[in-house]
Structure formats: C-alpha cells, structure tokens
Design a binder for these strands. Structure first.
Ligand SMILES: [Zn+2]
Ligand SMILES: [Zn+2]
Ligand SMILES: [Zn+2]
Ligand SMILES: [Zn+2]
Lengths: 138, 138
DNA sequence: CCTTGACCCTGAAGCCACTTCAGGCTTTTC
DNA sequence: GAAAAGCCTGAAGTGGCTTCAGGGTCAAGG
C-alpha cells in the first residue's frame, strides 16, 4: 500500500503522514525500487490510533507517550490515567473560559442592534470602555 | 514613558509590545536620543484595546480590522457586527465540540478504575478499539 | 573616572502541528 | 513517446508570540 492509498483510507493528508514519519510517530515504511513508501496494515492501525488521540485533543507529545506505553505491555498504566485526568481538567477549564466568553460576546453584540455610524456604535464604545476598566482593575 | 513602564502598567510583555509594533498594530513610538522607545497615553489605550480584544479570542487580523474601523469614524459599523456574529458562532461551535470531548474523555477514563498492567488496561484497549471503529465508519 | 546593574536595542530562531512550495523523479496510461 | 498522475526531498510559511545571542544606554556607587 503506498502513501496515497494510506492517505485516502485514513483521511490523513500525505504531507501529514510524512510529517509523522519525520517526528518518529510512525515507523519507517519499506521502500519500492523507485523509492516509494510501502505501508503495512500495522501502519494503518498506528496512524488511526494517532488521529483518534488527536481528535481527543492530545498533543503529539502525549501521543508519543501513549505509543511508548503501548510498547511496554507489562508496565503499569498509571501514566495513562494521569494523562487522561490532566486532559479532562484542561478541557473542563477551557469550557469554563469559553462559557464566560460566550456571555461577554453576546452582551457586547447587544450594544449595537442596528448598524449605525462607527463613532456612535455601541459595540466599539463598549470595547473601548471595557479596555479602560480592565486598566483600573489590574 | 518607556517600554518597561508600558509593559508593567498593562501587564503585556516587552517582547509582545515590540511584536505588535512590527505587526503594525501599534503606531511607531517616538525615540529618545539613545534610541529608546517613548510611549504616549494614546499608546497605552491602544495596547489595552488590543489585549481586551485578544481576551475575547479575536485574532490579530480581526483586531487590525477593528482598529481600521475605528480610524474611520464616519463609516458604518456593519463590519463590526458581522465580525462579532461570526466570532459568536465560532465560540458556540467550539463549546459544542468540547462538550462532546468532555463526554468522550470521561467515558474513556471510566475504563480503568484502578491501574493495572498496560496489556489489560481498559483505556488503552478502548483507544485502540475506537480508532478501529472510526475506520469502519469513514 | 570607572564600573556595576538595570534597562533597552536588533535580528534571528524556536514553539506546535501542520501546510505549502519549489523543483524534480517514477510509473501508468493513451 | 508523451502526458498525467503519483511520488520524492528539503525548505519555508502559518499565528502569536517567546527566547536567544550579542550588543548599546544610562543612573548610581566607589
Ligand atoms: Zn455548557
Ligand atoms: Zn454598531
Ligand atoms: Zn455534555
Ligand atoms: Zn489502566
């Protein structure tokens, strides 16, 4: 299976696959006489694993750790649990931030119901006012 | 006011201030004889405006647009409204994504109550299984 | 007068996770 | 035998900064 087919069957761009190879996240594939990469089902599996971890918002460094853990099957999985707990905490924190942001943005949007001139626009006035208040608070 | 004081009074790092200058987000300051930057209250205001917009998750490109709008006070503020609407939609979408992610992560975490060996860890097994299922779905 | 230390300067490179580009080779198809 | 599709490499670009290397400026103290 060459790189194009791997890309199609996983939905990962060719350049990304080569990038993962450079980053040692995918084992080096065999090569044809013409120097084309040749992948095995094992590569497909590992690439999917990487992408699934990425879809769970893990960094490549974290994926690297997980792959390392998988390669020592007799070790303990404490690392994995810790990694997940941290990730969960991060996501929770981010969601809270974004909830606040939603409130702020909606409130701000309310300051200009119908578009007027820039110099009287409630949004812009409020942006300037809030920037000033931040000043006072800090 | 030189750059250090500006940095202290706004909580923005010196390097970031210089970066904004390079990016034409802050007007060029005056210089002393020794080539030190000299800032006016106008700069303080604009820097705070930038940081406040950034705290609302706007990109520097979007901040640049807002600054441009502010510089033509007789124009209409349609752009501003559109920008905010788009931003609100983006944040809403991201919150939805993260909610799903929270569910996934918590469910995944549940697969390993107490740490066992890597080869029997429910989390790792589930990660591999899910990566495989994604394959079938696509 | 000289040195120390705080403060400032520039240009370049590093961060992450890719993406894009330039320029060229291999294989398949007509 | 020539075009088209596929593949190769190495380098640079993305955003929003941060960090680094290698300096220059300025006020205070000895
Ligand atoms: Zn919610
Ligand atoms: Zn308005
Ligand atoms: Zn939920
Ligand atoms: Zn476990």
């Amino acid at each position: 299976m060459q790189i194009g087919e791997l890309a199609r069957s996983t939905g990962v761009k060719i350049e990304t696959i080569r990038y993962y190879e450079r980053e040692h996240l995918l084992p080096l594939p065999q090569r044809t006489e013409g120097n084309y990469r040749l992948y095995s089902p094992r590569h497909v599996e590992q690439l999917r694993f990487i992408r699934y971890c990425r879809s769970l918002d893990m960094s490549l460094e974290e994926v690297r750790i997980l792959i390392g853990v998988l390669d020592t099957p007799s070790g303990s999985c404490l690392t994995v649990n810790a990694l997940l707990d941290e990730k969960i905490a991060e996501v929770d924190a981010r969601v809270n931030e974004l909830h606040k942001l939603q409130d702020q943005l909606r409130q701000l949007r309310g300051f200009c119901q119908q578009p007027d001139e820039v110099k009287t626009c409630g949004i812009l006035m409020e942006l300037n006012r809030s920037a000033g208040i931040d000043k006072a608070q800090i």
